[in-house]
């Protein structure tokens, strides 16, 4: 008896309904606000930062937070707040492009395997197993080390590991839809597999993809920080949250602020994205909300 009303809720689609539910989800509102703030800061850093991050002022080095330097300065006298602002755009860019690579390759692969079944499906799943067998971080280290450290290679390394994530997700979801009656109706109407995938499957799995995209985005930010921390991501003088932590490590005992603020920047950004992802999941799939 709960069946029909529940499906009716699931079917409730369209922007007004989405916006109404979105504003009701506290998790989404807070998460999205944080994500937008980080994005705004990243964009702002192109035009303005409190101090120039490329200028080294040895006289001002290792200052604790003050009214001049809210987050203090590093061992070269650079303003940490300014560096975090510039670092934001670096993190966002890496994670965004990595998610783009994962979605751009993974989703077509996954939906193709679901439509085709048979050998294509088998090959894709084996390929997925293979990639999942390599610990992602280890392989990222390998890739960046082979092709040289740098932001571009970091993006590729993180992006490659997003491919099987999206391939697997979209395959599973698409397989579920291929047996649904509205897909059968489209097949009776004579539509081909590609057309059905574009017209019916993709719009229906987009919810899942958006939610997973948010999660992978936040994982991408963590991965970029990790790679930069071990020296394989952004190269000097490009400021990056991970590299700032690396430089802070040796100064930990007398300048802990050098580690605390970039770390907080990472945590707040990731937290915001995760909250946004959870909120989105609740909004887009009321069935899951009941279970949480």
């Amino acid at each position: 008896m709960s069946g029909p009303s529940q499906s009716a809720e699931l079917d409730d689609w369209g922007w007004p309904a989405f916006a109404r539910r979105a504003l009701r989800s506290r998790s989404f509102v807070i998460g999205a606000a944080i994500a937008l703030l980080v994005l705004a800061i990243g964009i702002l850093s192109f035009f303005w930062t409190p101090y120039d991050v490329t200028r080294l002022v040895v006289a001002d080095r290792l200052q604790s937070p003050s009214s001049q330097h809210w987050f203090g300065t590093d061992h070269f006298g650079r303003d940490i707040l300014s560096m975090i602002m510039v670092g934001a755009r670096n993190s966002i860019a890496v994670a965004l492009v990595a998610v783009g690579i994962g979605m751009g390759i993974g989703v077509p692969l996954g939906t193709w395997a679901a439509a085709k079944r048979g050998w294509a499906d088998d090959v894709l799943m084996r390929f997925n197993d293979l990639i999942f067998a390599f610990p992602a971080l280890l392989s990222a280290v390998m890739i960046t080390a082979i092709f040289g450290p740098g932001i571009f290679n970091a993006i590729i390394a993180i992006g490659i590991f997003n491919i099987p994530v999206f391939a697997r997700l979209s395959r599973g979801a698409a397989l579920g839809f291929w047996t649904r009656e509205f897909i059968l109706a489209a097949r009776v109407a004579g539509k081909g597999k590609t057309r059905i995938t574009i017209e019916h499957i993709l719009p229906n799995i987009s919810n899942l993809l958006i939610v997973q995209g948010t999660i992978q985005f936040s994982l991408g930010i963590l991965a970029e920080a990790g790679l930069s921390y071990v020296g394989l991501g952004a190269q000097p003088p490009q400021p990056s949250w991970g590299r700032m932590l690396n430089e802070a490590q040796t100064m930990m005992s007398f300048a802990p602020h050098m580690a605390i603020f970039p770390g907080l920047a990472i945590i707040i950004t990731v937290l915001g994205l995760n909250m946004m992802g959870d909120g989105l999941r609740d909004i887009l799939d009321p069935r899951l909300k009941r279970e949480n």
Partner: peptide, 16 residues
Amino acid sequence: HMQIVFQDPYGSFNPR
């Protein structure tokens, strides 16, 4: 000229 009507009135349509 050959069409179908399914059982489940809820699963037969793309909600989008």
